[in-house]
Simulated assay, not measured.
Amino acid sequence: MVTTRQGVRLLGPGDVDAFLDLARRDPVANVFAMYRARTTRLEPRWLGGEAWGRFHDGELVAACHVGANLVPIESREEDARAFGERALARGRSVSTIVGPTEAVREFWRTVSDSWGRPRDLRWNQPHLVIDGPPTAAPDPGVRRTMRAELDELYPACVAMYTEEVGVSPEVGGRNDLYRTRVAQLVSRGWSFARFDAGRLVFKAEVACATDDAAQIQGVWVPPDRRGEGLAVAGMAAVVELVRAEIAPRVSLYVNEWNEPARRAYARVGFQETTTFSTIMF
């Protein structure tokens, strides 16, 4: 396949091993990219987009996942600029740019004049990891959710998403798609919750996972139950369950202004390793 003057080309199934070798340089920060490569084999029809690679002397030195989310992988500033130039020629199709701050910032500098005004820019999102037992007592009531509980779980997922992202996942009639996504996480055993008298009072999901790490998303407690320690005990339980049955390291990233969540994660034993940034359209 012909490369561009910047050494960037489309990746495909023949590049999966090289892509995974690249992502393994930081298997926790790159867990999303590794999960997507393993489940799609970098086939555009399964990716719902493309994967790009940047090469130097025939070696893959950086990559970029371009689906609903654009995610730079092991990208230095010059790599992010090269991916940005390719993105300018292609036009914006993504709804989110997310990844390590330096790469996201340089990519955005390259495309910002042409890609339009984003809905939100979140430059400082601490990336947190725990690779041992939680330092808080786990809630014994937290467990995997079941399909029969979807009618209670789904509204909580919509509420969390709307609160976190600022727009409902059901906008534009996408409720069937989002409900299917929630149901898939339940079926996979990646959805965890605590119920009190049938009411959900804590939830969290695994967004993606490999043999090295699992990334948590969707941590939520109903507003009227906040301040009771449900998030601390709930996340401690999720960490125990995930480390025992899914992956040895657990990660997530959090908005810098969300002090209650950051305090809760610190009490569970999460440690900051790097900084992510997210740009949303």
Rank of each mutant, 00 (worst) to 15 (best):
L20H: 00
L20R: 05
L20P: 07
L20Q: 09
D21C: 04
D21K: 13
A23F: 03
R24W: 07
R24Q: 04
R24F: 00
D26R: 10
P27H: 06
V28C: 07
V28T: 12
V28L: 10
V28F: 00
A29E: 11
N30V: 10
V31N: 12
F32G: 03
A33I: 12
A33V: 15
A33M: 08
Y35M: 11
Y35W: 10
Y35H: 14
Y35G: 05
A37C: 11
A37P: 08
R38W: 02
T39M: 06
R41D: 09
L42I: 13
L42V: 07
E43G: 06
E43D: 11
P44A: 04
P44L: 07
W46H: 14
W46V: 07
L47D: 04
L47W: 09
L47C: 10
G48P: 08
G48M: 08
G48S: 06
G48H: 10
G48Y: 05
G49N: 07
G49W: 01
E50C: 11
E50G: 03
E50Y: 11
E50W: 10
A51E: 09
A51C: 06
A51K: 14
F55A: 08
H56K: 15
D57N: 15
G58Q: 04
G58H: 10
G58D: 12
G58W: 04
E59I: 07
L60M: 14
V61F: 02
V61K: 12
V61W: 11
A62E: 08
A62C: 04
A62N: 03
A63N: 02
C64T: 09
H65A: 09
H65M: 15
H65S: 13
G67S: 07
A68L: 11
N69L: 14
V71C: 00
V71W: 02
V71L: 04
V71G: 01
I73Y: 00
S75K: 04
R76Y: 02
R76W: 05
E77I: 15
E78D: 14
R81H: 08
R81G: 12
R81W: 07
R81F: 02
F83Q: 01
G84N: 03
E85C: 14
E85I: 12
L88Y: 07
A89E: 11
A89N: 11
A89P: 01
R90G: 01
R90S: 05
R90T: 04
R90V: 06
G91P: 14
G91F: 15
G91T: 12
G91C: 06
S93G: 15
V94C: 13
V94P: 02
V94W: 12
V94R: 07
T96G: 01
T96C: 09
T96E: 12
I97F: 14
V98E: 06
V98W: 01
G99V: 15
T101R: 15
T101E: 15
E102M: 05
E102N: 08
A103L: 05
A103E: 02
R105C: 05
R109A: 02
R109Q: 13
